[in-house]
Design a protein around this nucleic acid. Structure first.
Lengths: 380, 380
DNA sequence: AGGTGTACGTTCAATCCCTGAACAAGGGAG
DNA sequence: CTCCCTTGTTCAGGGATTGAACGTACACCT
């Protein structure tokens, strides 16, 4: 069954749809060359796909037919909970974003309030975009905490108290009446950068999101890697200083306690008063010596973790996202310096460390990417 | 071409040969059930394979035919250079080891001498086994240092001086007149444990070889993972103590300088005189408090690295190999303790740390495994 | 402007492959 | 001994891919 002829056909159908989806618009000849199939096969499969409504065909000069992914009816919504904000986006399936909106929100609140706020924001966005609620086909949801990949339930109550034990996907799905897929914000950010941003085309990638906390995610062979039980990529809680400050994860001296945005804010409070991470970065760009210093220090701590990562995984690219990434070279140069010193030379030479291109939209765009392509994960 | 009908047939042929090879001997009906193919297909393919000499068929009561992998003609040789020994093995393709031999050898010697010694040992082994040199079809070679995956040339001259810049596979191949595949000893050890030893059936595995130095290798989805440029898994040179001792890799405080066998030997020299790692382990098992202490300390340092590994990769299994692994619980319990303290709880709960089952034969068996199945690596 | 060349998409017969059903052969239970 | 089950083989039937042939439309050169 699995290897029958019909399975082969199915494989080729999928191959063509995928190729079309990725390239946007292609002629049949191009398709044949890219997929390695013969023009004859492409011709018949394209006809099938058109009849099934999966692709659209438009004349394009000469005998050329331009094959493009069908304007899928139905819309999708992405939701991204940050530590201090809530962001939603509305998009066509073809990835075109129609509307987007954010509001400040403290994720420390309890889950029901969070989900209620998300629902209100979504409904409001739909209203302003003039979209009927029934057009929404699916929702992608990002949360800044660990999610059990089996059950979908939020774990580790110490990281996100008020959310422990709830199943956010089921809960939000119940409220909105559509399927909801959930993942943590770092995974979604990685996905977004890999789909549209700095990691496009790279296969071995690490993504680090440095906002209030530090999250991370790994792409292996171009696909999300989750490890044996779904917690791969927790670089934020790697131990940098065994005698360091207590971390909300229960251990001591985690990277997050040294390079997380919260720590940086605490460090400059005596001299600069209460600021946000973004404001801190702004001040650093403006030349503030203290802010530059705490950012550089954070970079050095991050460098230690990235160096470990390089030795273990030897990625070709490390993308830095989150609010602190906006510091750019002020953060990345110290990282590189430390990586050059601590990682084995060949791995250090191989790695590129760059700023993410999607900024604070990475999470919500990743949620859109995730809900539209379920097969983004590396096989368990 | 790639998805043509003939490719489908090729896939199914391979599926059947693989299934046969793994199970040893099967009837056609069992084959059909296991592969999901129809009995008719199995029948024709089995006939093809018999004609091609890839499987053998024997009557087995009733109408049953027992399909078994062909006693492949030709033999293979595995060679494993350790830091202080040289080991070779002779095997049938079906993995049955015919003869094996080891000799002390200092890898610090220059490459030509090392390869000459290997050649002598192989030739001697063939002689004693009564095997003609022409029967050898291929050789697998393991070396305790980094190898450029593109060129096959030994890199990082600081780790294995005397071998830098040489292409050991080509060199040994020239001497013996057969193809030689080369890889580092940690990768081969991992492969061996995954094929016959403690990691059989596991998919997300880290293997650490703690001999004179510390090497490591990672299996993702059951396949060797090499990273973007082939240096993934260099856990031995992860930085544990930034102000620690200089390491031969050029950095400071690498895991190897704290938990490598050489370090342990140095530590007990004042009190116990010059000993080998094996002797040190023996003394510890005998109750020697000093030896127990240095092993436990090494375990704690290893635990720091394994904890990082857990946070980043979330493996289901960590296999400890190399001479120091024989310390068993004396080494593994401290590792687990530290992992429990430093890794995030869900990753720490998921991981099993066990001793390798193949002992000092892991490297040479891995060389045999490697040379017999070229497709053991995760796609780049 | 006209002719020629080239690339594109479609059609069709040929070829290859998997499968279900029918069938022969043997072993085991009652 | 008979019935029943399992096993392996054969054969026709239905799918799928491909190479070759063909019609078409644009581009380019003269």
């Amino acid at each position: 069954m699995a290897n029958s002829l019909t399975a082969l056909r199915e494989t080729n159908r999928r191959l063509i749809t995928e190729t079309v989806r990725k390239s946007g618009a292609l002629t049949q000849a191009q398709l044949a060359r890219q997929t390695g199939l013969s023009p004859a096969t492409v011709s018949t499969i394209v006809r099938e796909l058109r009849d099934a409504g999966l692709v659209e065909i438009s004349q394009a000069g000469g005998r050329r037919h331009l094959i493009s992914p069908a304007r899928e009816t139905g819309l999708v919504v992405g939701v991204d909970f940050g530590h201090s904000h809530l962001r939603v986006a509305l998009a066509e399936r073809s990835h075109r974003v129609l509307a987007e909106e954010a509001m400040p929100f403290d994720v420390g609140a309890r889950a029901p309030e969070g989900l209620a706020a998300a629902e209100r924001l979504i409904v409001g966005l739909l209203g302003r975009a003039g979209v009927n609620r029934a057009e929404i086909k699916a929702v992608g949801l990002g949360l800044p905490g660990p999610i059990d990949p089996e059950t979908g339930i939020m774990g580790s109550s110490t990281i996100l108290p008020g959310w422990a034990g709830v199943d956010p996907a089921a809960e939000l799905g119940r409220r909105l009446g559509v399927p909801v897929v959930v993942d943590n914000d770092a995974n979604l950010g990685a996905l977004a950068e890999a789909t549209w941003g700095a990691a496009k085309g790279w296969r071995e990638v690490a993504y680090m999101k440095i906002g209030t906390g530090v999250g991370a995610s790994i792409l292996i062979n171009g696909l999300l890697y989750r490890g044996a039980t779904g917690t791969a990529g927790e670089l934020g809680h790697i131990t940098i200083d065994e005698n360091g400050r207590l971390c909300r994860c229960g251990n001591r001296g985690c990277l997050e306690t040294l390079a997380g945005g919260q720590q940086l804010i605490d460090l400059v409070r005596p001299t600069h008063g209460q600021v946000t991470v973004s404001r801190l970065v702004e001040l650093a760009h403006g030349g503030d010596i203290g802010c530059r210093r705490v950012i550089a220090d954070a970079g050095r701590h991050l460098g230690v973790a990235v160096a470990s990562l390089c030795n273990i995984l030897n990625p070709g690219l490390v993308v830095i996202g989150g609010a602190l990434a906006e510091a750019g070279p002020l953060l990345i140069e110290p990282i590189m310096t430390v990586v050059g010193r601590l990682a084995i030379p060949s791995a250090a030479r191989a790695v590129n460390v760059v700023k993410g291109e999607l900024g604070e939209r990475a999470g919500v765009l990743g949620a859109l990417a995730h809900v539209q392509s379920p097969n983004v994960e590396s096989a368990l």
